[in-house]
């Protein structure tokens, strides 16, 4: 078994509804993504990018196929674990277009919430969170509320949150859509650096071609299946 594999999908299919209203979104998608890779995922709107991410992230149940995350097969025509949520909180980091921070928690609490759920002791979690804030240049905002930060700052907190549980995989759905060009490039470079430094596989959905040069590979959804360019 290849130790470098982070995500492997085999004949992954997803359709919504049934009968006349059946909508096929993903059909026989098979691909392998290695640790340390930053993958750009592109497709037209409605092409199934979010759907694919949500299946890999164990949020949306596929219709059929097989998903392996690291050395654990999590889906084989059915979930192999009852606790998909445990997989999410231990192995996966999510980043979205909006930061989706918890508005009633301050920045440091937003970051330590997930480690707390993972039963990591408070001190270790706090130290890790502070390191991340430092890394992203917002260490002075630890006690601030999300509403007191700028959009770019909040997005950096959101990325930090996706990293705080030391995930093997980061799924980023248009993380730069709300940012200007310069900040977008900063974020993508940052993701590339994280992928390399921490051996994390990152799939990033983007509509912005200018981000593609910073990615290792480009994955497209064509005829409902995935192809690499």
């Amino acid at each position: 078994m290849n130790k470098k594999i982070a995500i492997r999908a085999e004949n992954l299919c997803k359709s919504f509804g049934d009968g006349d209203s059946l909508v096929e979104v993903i059909k026989n998608a098979s691909f392998t993504i290695n640790k340390g890779e930053l993958i750009a995922l592109i497709a037209p709107s409605g092409g199934g990018k979010t759907t694919l991410l949500m299946m890999i992230g164990c949020v949306e149940e596929p219709t059929s196929g097989k998903i392996r995350l690291g050395d654990e097969t999590v889906y084989d025509d059915k979930w192999l674990t009852r606790e998909t949520r445990k997989i999410r909180r231990e192995k996966i980091g999510f980043i979205f277009q909006a930061h989706y921070l918890i508005p009633f928690l301050n920045i440091i609490d937003n970051l330590t919430l997930l480690p707390q759920a993972n039963k990591i002791d408070e001190k270790t979690a706090k130290k890790k969170a502070e390191e991340l804030l430092h890394y992203f240049g917002i260490a002075d905002k630890a006690k601030a509320m999300p509403s007191q930060l700028s959009g770019g700052q909040n997005q950096r907190v959101a990325i930090a949150r996706a990293l705080v549980n030391n995930p093997q995989i980061i799924l980023a759905d248009e993380p730069t859509a709300a940012l200007d060009m310069q900040r977008s490039v900063d974020v993508v470079k940052m993701l590339k650096q994280i992928a390399e430094e921490q051996e994390v596989a990152i799939i990033m959905v983007t509509h912005d071609d200018r981000m593609l040069p910073y990615c290792d590979r480009i994955m497209k959804i064509k005829n409902m299946a995935t192809v690499f360019e």
Partner: peptide, 11 residues
Amino acid sequence: EISIMKLMGLP
């Protein structure tokens, strides 16, 4: 927020 917490994997 609750949906986000569930998505992140909070029990």
